[in-house]
């Protein structure tokens, strides 16, 4: 895969952030930044302007949907992939309507997560430059 951008992982659970970071590393993504809640995610986003945000749906205080809405307000082109556990269809649909690009189930084996991430990233970014293809 030919992705050299920066990814921001937003999840309130440290083990998930660590797990997903290792998965990203395994598919060749080196620049990973973490945030443990929605407010921190918004600050970090504005500071480092990452290429992709991996966003947990279920977080205390500001949940993933609310965070996504605020991210889109800051940057309408923000490329977000939702992290869900047991696929909650209605939440996922809501996120996609708000402009999330995809969703990934984090309770599946790491090979599946890796493949889903690699597919999504290469479809969007391997077109040559680092702006989403569409």
């Amino acid at each position: 895969m030919n992705f050299t951008g920066t990814i921001l992982i937003v999840d309130d659970e440290a083990h998930i952030r660590k797990f997903v970071t290792l998965i990203l590393r395994s598919i060749g993504v080196a620049n990973v930044v973490e945030a443990s809640n929605g407010a921190e995610a918004l600050q970090t986003y504005q500071r480092i302007n990452p290429d992709v945000v991996l966003l947990d749906v279920n977080m205390p205080q500001m949940d993933g949907i609310e965070t996504l809405r605020k991210l889109k307000a800051i940057d309408p082109d923000c490329f977000a992939i939702m992290l869900t556990s047991l696929a909650n269809r209605s939440t996922v649909e809501q996120a996609l309507e708000l402009g999330a690009s995809n969703y990934i189930r984090k309770d599946t084996p790491k090979e599946e997560i890796a493949k889903a991430l690699a597919d999504t990233l290469s479809a969007a970014f391997d077109a040559g430059d680092e702006t989403p293809a569409a």
Binding site: K18, F19, K106, T108, K110, I113
Partner: peptide, 23 residues
């Protein structure tokens, strides 16, 4: 069961990374 799934999936996945020598 729902709340146990995520941490368990992480433990399993992190153990795989260790086992496979990734780190």
């Amino acid at each position: 069961a729902h709340d146990l799934r995520n941490p368990l999936a992480s433990i399993r996945g992190l153990a795989e990374f260790l086992r496979d020598g990734t780190v």
